[in-house]
Amino acid sequence: MSHGHDSEQVGHIVPLWLLFGVFFALIILTALTVWTATQIDLGAFNIWLALVIAGVKATLVALFFMHLIWDKPYNGLVLAFSFMFVILFLGISLMDTAENMPDMYEGPAPAVATE
């Protein structure tokens, strides 16, 4: 049983203080996001603020809880890539629907029979 840093050791052992530190940061950020969303009115900017906070929280979880910071870079790349494709999917769908979807029932939209 080898506990040292020799080649047999698989994975990185995260110190406890770091685990707890990340946890408390996450809780504080949660409180922050509730507070900013309910108490501060930034108009359209609120959603972006909430998303930024969520992004920071997600990064903390991914980097430390999910060991990405010590992991092979490819694994991080996989996650980053998946987020990129989500943004691509959302972005283009939004670009299209933003142009014609509001017309759908804000004007006198044609009625549709249901079955």
Binding site: Y105, A109, A111, V112, A113, T114
Partner: peptide, 8 residues
């Protein structure tokens, strides 16, 4: 929404 022009 079966009624014209509905849904508005």
């Amino acid at each position: 929404s079966t009624t014209l022009p509905a849904a508005i």
